[in-house]
Write a protein that binds this DNA or RNA. Structure first.
Length: 829
RNA sequence: GCGAGAGUGGCGAAACUGGUAGACGCACUGGACUUAGGAUCCAGCCCUGCCUGCAGGAUGGGGGUUCGAGUCCCCCCUCUCGCACCA
């Protein structure tokens, strides 16, 4: 073998070997314990970035580690291949999204192979391929049949730049998550998935996923936003109609002095029509609808409103309440109308002060003798307390009053206890070309008619000319939209919207388990064998979006009989970002590190090693070129440990653990087994690859130390060989290429991938003598050597006899001696 | 504002249930080998003191529990992330 570590040729050699021998392929085998390991598949943007390298390196270490531990490991990879960037890039470059996408996939697949990731490529998926999305269209039809997919007109988040609708989850701080432009509200016909049908189960299971990070579960809980309250009905003063509100504070009903409704509220026009306020309301509503969502949905926004000209009646007091249109009331939450209790709600308080509306204190703090005086109020009192000025509910505690007041209104048919969610149904229509067509046909006579299942797939046409403004060409592409009604055979028009790309990523993990299956979307038995995903790994940015939709889809597919699990991902690891110079890598900051260049310079193993060594997976990883240098140096050191002694090592057998050894060698042997234990536990139990690697580095250092002044003993090389083989085995999941090469150099003829993971021997871990720390009053004062199974009494006696300790305790009385066997002794004086 | 997490050397980080703070690596310093080395090997490397051994201090700040606290409890400061007028 070469004296110098030259990764380039050897990495290629082993990648070709693994591929030829099909070592990454996996099959269902009920006799073996399965492990489904999955990393979030990438969008084929053109090139792999360091975030991917990190994500997939973490996954690959686990995959290889688990294989060596004997698991039947499913480790697939694919492409989240539909989406806007393909269209934008195609318009810019004058090419086609399909061409752009497939070329990117080819290039990126090559990059992943160059990194040595052990994917079963025979299961590869590209979601833009009709063999994939055809099944998604089938799911859509079944969901439509069951009322889980439906169409309605709705105000939607609209991005002018991207010409498309965005899900709530895709709006970040009022801006489009992709292009960062302000999002406006637009009313359109849209297709929705009824995720709200599963809201309680989705919420319940956030308490039954112990393998998920707490913060992800909390984010999902917040997103679902379940709150208990009451629906209360306020009759209009005119006697013609009513307004329903949702409130969590029915106990404050007697303090409700006016009503606030959203500008989009359906009653706005009716309430203002024919009143002197009509024109003012019209103008206000227009202004509010145009104003950016980012501005409307923040506390910083000045609360504004206008009187509608109509009033309703407080059902508790019988008093008149003016109805205002207010910019801070959201149509999207509750009923779009809020009973305003200015004394007990800060928003209503500010609004009332601004427009000089009446206030009424109806709750006093539990321990206050006197209720606060109105004129002293500087802010609303929002906490629970005791009711006052509330007729016969006065004196009641808030919690009971909420029930009692609602119950009384319920008797008159004017209220009920209810539950409100923040989560809304998932709008999936996208006015974009590069997505899966929604299998619906619009007929003038029959309305929206689903495409019959036997007519699937609705193939996305590729012979289209893209429009320069980015709008979808489908509505003007006659061969696509022109069709006949499946019911009445009249000329009809296809739906030209496509599905949100999050639909594809909501079930790809299941399709991986049915690779090649053509008789349906999922091969039940194979899916049953593999699912759930035992370990899912990806970025925290998908904490709500992708992970919630996947959970929803899993439950829907379960109820359709396709899946046998309730949840898709048993354990979730969210890895941190890769940063450089303190901030996220980005073109604009010019701090991007290109994986290709790194592989070119140091080899894939070094890049992988650095990604795993510099930080534990859940933390951000600071990229450091000198640190990469250090990783390369370590691999070179391991290389030389073997190459410098190639002949000798080849011709001895590893020490088997029997026979007397001189101290230096028995220390090395012990260190070898301690390292097996430490590395195994760090990888298996904590995913702390950084400390696992550190422990192997220690072992390598110790081998070098022994070889610096080698004892002249026959047992020298067997013990060194045991250490060297252990090093190679332990690092093999992390740096598989060099490990494979060194494994052969040590005399093995089969792939290290098929070698069993090292197992430490308990009796090899323990030294004959160990260091016991001796403290006086909690301060480290001395160390003594003792047998690991020395009794407390023996340890105590030895400590008190220690010369240094005697100096410290001379002339003082020992009050107490604490002995922690195997660890330390603390003498209290 | 609410919720979660985090603050440890010049830097990335260790310290698993309270028990030797700083493993491992980077950077730095010195030495060896060498024509030379940014190659390699060896050594040093938290701060302060007489520089031998040791003593004292030190895990954002302050207090507490304990024989013993980076770790547990209370108060405060800073940073990161998430949610943010949700009625």
């Amino acid at each position: 073998m070469e004296a110098k570590y030259l990764p380039k040729t050897l990495e290629k050699k082993w990648q070709d070997f693994w591929e030829k021998e099909e070592l990454f392929k996996v099959q269902e085998d009920p006799s073996r314990e399965k492990f489904y390991l999955l990393e979030m598949f990438p969008y084929p943007s053109g090139r792999i970035h360091m975030g991917h390298v990190r994500n997939y390196s973490i996954g690959d270490v686990l995959a290889r580690f688990l294989r060596m531990q004997g698991y039947n490991v499913l480790h697939p990879m694919g492409w989240d291949a539909f989406g806007m960037p393909a269209e934008n890039a195609a318009i810019k470059a004058g090419t086609h999204p399909a061409k752009w996408t497939y070329e990117n996939i080819d290039y990126m697949r090559g990059q992943l192979k160059k990194l040595g990731f052990s994917y079963d490529w025979s299961r590869e998926i590209a979601t833009c391929h009709v063999d994939y999305y055809r099944w998604e269209q089938l799911f859509f039809l079944k969901m439509y049949e069951q009322g889980l997919a439906y169409r309605r007109s709705a105000y939607v988040n609209w991005c002018e730049t991207c010409h498309t609708v965005l899900a709530n989850e895709q709006v970040e701080g009022g801006a489009c998550w992709r292009c960062d432009q302000p999002v406006i509200q637009k009313e359109m016909d849209q297709w929705f998935f009824k995720i709200t049908d599963y809201v309680d189960e989705l919420l319940d299971y956030t308490h039954k996923l112990p393998g998920w990070p707490e913060r992800v579960l909390v984010m999902q809980q917040n997103w679902i936003g379940k709150s208990y309250g009451s629906k209360l009905i306020f009759p209009l003063e005119s006697g013609d109609g009513e307004i329903t509100v949702f409130t969590t504070r029915a106990d404050t009903l007697f303090g409700a002095t006016f009503m606030s409704i959203a500008p989009e509220h359906p009653l706005v026009e009716k309430l203002s029509r024919g009143t002197p306020q009509e024109e003012a309301v019209r103008q206000f509503v227009e202004h509010a609808k145009l104003s950016k969502r980012s501005d409307r949905e923040t506390e910083l926004m000045e609360k504004e409103g206008v009187f509608t000209g109509s009033c309703c009646i407080n059902p508790a007091t019988g008093e008149k309440m003016p109805i205002y249109v207010a910019n801070f009331v959201l149509m999207a939450y509750g009923t779009g109308a809020v009973m305003a209790v200015p004394a007990h709600d800060q928003r209503d308080f500010e609004f009332a002060r601004k427009y000089d509306l009446p206030m009424k204190v109806v709750i006093k703090p539990q321990d206050a003798a006197e209720p606060p005086r109105l004129e002293d109020l500087t802010a609303a009192f929002e906490e629970d307390g005791v009711l006052i000025h509330s007729d016969r509910f006065s004196g009641m505690a808030s919690a009971q009053a909420r029930e009692a007041i609602t119950a009384e209104l319920a008797e008159k048919g004017r209220g009920e206890r209810t539950v409100q969610y923040r989560l809304r149904d998932w709008g999936i229509s996208r006015q974009r070309y590069w997505g899966a067509p929604i299998p619906i046909i619009y007929c003038d006579k029959c309305g929206a008619v689903p495409v019959p299942a036997e007519d699937l797939p609705v193939v996305l046409p590729t012979d289209v000319a893209l429009l320069p403004n980015g709008a979808s060409p489908l509505p003007v592409h006659e061969p696509f939209f022109k069709t006949t009604c499946p019911r009445c055979k009249a000329t009809a028009r296809r739906e030209t919207d496509t599905m949100d790309t999050f639909v594809e990523s909501s079930w790809y993990f299941a399709r991986f388990a049915s690779a090649g299956y053509e008789d349906g979307p999922l091969d039940f038995d194979r899916v049953k064998y593999w699912l759930p995903v035992n370990q899912y790994i990806g970025g925290i940015e998908h904490a709500v979006l992708h992970l919630l939709y996947s959970r929803f889809f899993t439950k829907v597919l379960r109820d359709m009989g396709y899946l046998a699990v309730d949840e898709p991902f048993e354990n979730l690891l969210t890895q941190g970002m890769v940063i450089k110079d303190g901030s996220k890598m980005s073109k604009s900051k010019g701090n991007v590190v290109d994986p290709d260049e790194m592989i070119q310079a140091y080899g894939a193993d070094t890049v992988r090693l650095f990604c795993l060594f510099a930080a534990p997976p859940e933390k951000d990883l600071e990229w450091n070129d000198q640190g990469v240098e250090g990783s390369f140096r370590f691999l070179s050191r391991v290389w030389r440990m073997v190459s410098d002694n190639e002949e000798t090592l080849l011709n001895v057998s590893a020490y088997s653990g029997n026979g007397e050894l001189p101290k230096a060698l028995s220390d090395l042997h012990r260190k070898t087994h301690q390292t097996m234990k430490k590395a195994t536990e760090d990888i298996r139990d904590r995913f702390h690859f950084n400390t696992a690697i550190a422990s192997v580095m220690e072992l390598v250092n110790q081998v070098y130390q022994v070889l610096e002044s080698p004892p002249k003993e026959d047992s020298l090389w067997p013990v060194v060989k045991e250490a060297a083989e252990t090093v190679v085995l332990l690092i093999s999941p992390i740096v598989p290429h060099i490990a494979e090469e060194l494994w052969r150099a040590l005399g093995h003829t089969t792939s290290i991938m098929t070698a069993p993971w090292p197992r430490w021997r308990e009796e090899s871990l323990q030294a004959e003598e160990i260091v016991i720390v001796v403290q006086v009053n909690g301060k480290l004062r001395s160390r003594i050597m003792a047998s690991p199974d020395a009794s407390q009494e023996e340890l105590k006696a030895a400590a008190l006899q220690d010369g240094r300790i005697q100096d410290f305790i001379a002339g003082k009385s020992v009050k107490k001696v604490i002995v922690i066997p195997g660890k330390l002794i603390n003498i209290v004086i």
